[in-house]
Simulated scan of single mutants.
Amino acid sequence: MKDPNDDFEHVTPLLFGRVLDGKGGGRPITWEDAQDWSPGNPDEVMWLHLDRTRPGMQHWLEEKLSLPEPTAELLTGDQNRPRAFREGETLVATLRGINFNPGAEPEDMISMQLWSDGQRLITLRRHPLQTPREILMAIDQGQGPPDAGATITLLAELLITRMSQSIIDMNYVLDELEAQDPDQHAEQMLHRISTIRRNCLALKRHMAPQHEALEQISRDAPMWFEGHDRREIAESIARLRRYLDDIDISKESAVVLQDELRARSLASSEHATYMLTIVAGIFLPLSFLTGLLGINVGGMPGMNDPDAFWTVAAICALLFVALIVVFRRLRWL
Rank of each mutant, 00 (worst) to 15 (best):
Q188R: 07
Q216V: 12
H211N: 01
M137L: 14
I233Y: 08
L159C: 13
D181H: 10
S164E: 14
A238L: 00
I167D: 08
E178F: 11
R198T: 14
S194I: 05
H271F: 08
Q188T: 13
I168K: 15
D220V: 07
L214T: 04
G142T: 11
T153W: 00
M163C: 09
E157A: 10
Y172S: 12
L266R: 15
K251L: 08
I152M: 04
K204D: 02
S253N: 02
A208F: 03
N199E: 13
T195F: 12
I237E: 06
L203I: 00
L155S: 09
L154W: 04
R219A: 02
L266M: 15
A138K: 14
T195I: 02
D140S: 11
C200Y: 00
G149L: 03
R230H: 08
A186R: 14
A156W: 02
T153R: 00
H185M: 09
A186Y: 01
L240M: 05
W224E: 02
I196F: 02
R264F: 04
M223D: 09
D140A: 08
K204G: 06
I249E: 06
I233L: 04
Y274W: 15
Q188H: 13
Y172C: 10
R231F: 11
L154N: 03
D183F: 05
R242I: 00
I168C: 14
D229Y: 06
S218H: 04
T161A: 09
E235A: 10
T273A: 15
A179G: 05
A272G: 05
I139L: 13
S268N: 15
Q165A: 11
Q210A: 03
F225G: 05
L214P: 11
E226K: 09
E260R: 12
A234Q: 01
N199A: 13
S268M: 15
L240E: 03
N171T: 11
I193E: 10
I160G: 04
V255Y: 02
T195Y: 04
A221S: 13
G149E: 07
E187Q: 15
M275A: 10
L261S: 03
D147Q: 08
Y172P: 04
N199K: 00
A221R: 11
A150G: 11
L261A: 08
I233D: 06
A186V: 08
R197N: 12
P145K: 05
H206P: 06
A234H: 02
G142L: 08
I160P: 01
L240Q: 02
P182C: 07
I193M: 01
A213Y: 07
S253H: 04
L266I: 14
Q180M: 07
C200E: 04
T151V: 06
E270P: 05
L174R: 05
Q210W: 08
M163H: 00
L240G: 07
D175G: 12
E215W: 11
R264A: 10
L174T: 09
E157Q: 09
M275D: 07
A202W: 03
Q188L: 05
K204I: 02
D259H: 03
E270R: 13
S164K: 14
A272C: 12
A208V: 01
Q180N: 04
Y274L: 15
